[in-house]
């Protein structure tokens, strides 16, 4: 199997996630798009780990990084949704284009 199979799939998912982050207004949908981006990165890490393990048997650093990224993503979703709930409680809306207090 070509390593490019996985790398190109990761690239496509990454770009779809970036489009979602740009296009979506609903904060929960933006968080979902960020999950797509993080998953594409994990796919790349594991593919390169397989490629690299051919010459370095027993080394699984890519797997370790992927596990760390999964943990970070879980923390990010927890804090992100707490912030979304806070914004919703204060403003009755989670449209990101209405959050313009910090505009200069």
């Amino acid at each position: 199997m070509l390593v490019n199979n996985f790398l190109l799939l990761g690239a496509v998912l990454f770009c779809i996630g970036v489009y979602g982050v740009i296009a979506r207004k609903n904060a929960v949908m933006v968080l979902m798009s960020i999950e797509l981006i993080l998953n594409s990165v994990n796919l790349n890490l594991l593919a390169f780990n397989q490629l690299w393990a051919k010459d370095n048997p027993g080394h699984v650093d890519g797997n370790t990084f992927a596990l760390y990224i999964i943990a970070i993503a879980a923390a990010e979703v927890g804090v992100g949704l707490a912030m979304v709930l806070l914004i919703f409680r204060n403003r009755k809306s989670i449209s990101l284009d209405e959050l313009s207090e910090m505009k200069g």
């Binding site: 770009c15 740009i22 979506r24 609903n26």
Partner: peptide, 23 residues
């Protein structure tokens, strides 16, 4: 119908450009 930004279409060329470079 209110899930997207007004100028959501901007995302399409950005994502396609990135995809092109990465591919």
């Amino acid at each position: 119908a209110d899930l997207n930004n007004k100028n959501a279409k901007v995302g399409i060329p950005v994502a396609l450009l990135m995809l092109g470079v990465m591919v």
